[in-house]
């Protein structure tokens, strides 16, 4: 571990007790090291301040999108015009016979229900809605469960599929991005994330992920990623 890593480990509280004490002794004796630690602390504080400013701005933007959501619900005229354009667009689109990112989506039939687990009743109901194809209801149910357990990878994954299938791509991206590397859903979520980025037009991020997946021979979606990448290129 070099000095820079050591400083990080010290400030993150990742050093073992003995090493931590030894480092404190070094700090008392070494002015230059003390200055470096002070500088690193200031840098971390500066990054933190920049992050909270960004968070505030993101919340402002999010706020606007919330207002936009509720206005849209009551604007039937806009909805009708929108539906017309979607249908017209679909016809033109199909006539041109081009591929779309969703052509590369992968199927997911859901998880089997486990009998007798009353504590998972809400989850079972949500999964039943998912299997029945009522993705809006399933999404709402998964999200309600996610509020109680925000880091649950199963909920993040299936709520993401519901969001993606109901065209809330941003939500799907947020969900799949939250899935940990240790999760059994990681591979599927990773591939789906790429398709979601592609769907919102962020081809660069889609390519980065697809390239990574396609280069990993052990990845279960390596072939799909290769095909999608070819189409994107």
């Amino acid at each position: 571990m070099d000095e820079s890593e050591l400083i990080d480990a010290f400030l993150r509280g990742e050093l073992e007790e003995a090493r931590h004490q030894e480092f404190i002794k070094q700090l008392d004796a070494n002015t230059e090291l003390k200055r470096k630690v002070l500088l690193r602390k200031l840098v971390i504080e500066g990054i933190g301040q920049a992050y909270t400013e960004k968070l505030k701005l993101d919340l402002k933007e999010f706020d606007k999108s919330l207002d936009g959501k509720s206005r849209f619900q009551f604007s039937w005229k806009i909805a009708a015009v929108f539906a017309f354009f979607v249908m017209a667009g679909s016809v033109v689109y199909m006539s041109l016979n081009k591929t779309s990112p969703t052509d590369f989506d992968i199927a997911d039939t859901g998880l089997p229900n486990e009998m007798g687990m009353s504590t998972n009743l809400e989850f079972t109901k949500a999964m039943n809605s998912f299997k029945a194809g009522d993705l809006k209801l399933a999404g709402t149910s998964f999200n309600a469960l996610l509020n109680q357990n925000p880091a649950n990878d199963t909920l993040l994954y299936y709520s993401g599929i519901c969001a993606f299938q109901t065209n809330d791509n941003e939500q799907a991206i947020r969900n799949w991005n939250e899935i940990s590397l240790a999760s059994s859903f990681k591979d599927k979520a990773e591939y789906r994330l790429a398709i979601a980025y592609w769907t919102i037009g962020d081809a660069e991020k889609a390519k980065v992920i697809l390239k990574k997946v396609s280069e990993n021979k052990k990845h279960p979606y390596q072939k799909e990623a290769l095909m999608a990448l070819r189409e994107l290129d």
Binding site: D58, L66, N147, N149, P150, A151, E178
Partner: peptide, 22 residues
């Protein structure tokens, strides 16, 4: 669970809290 999720770097939960209580 919410506090742990935020500590683990989840931003999503902050936006959910905003939407829930705004």
């Amino acid at each position: 669970a919410i506090i742990e999720a935020i500590k683990a770097g989840s931003e999503k939960i902050l936006f959910q809290l905003y939407e829930t209580y705004r």
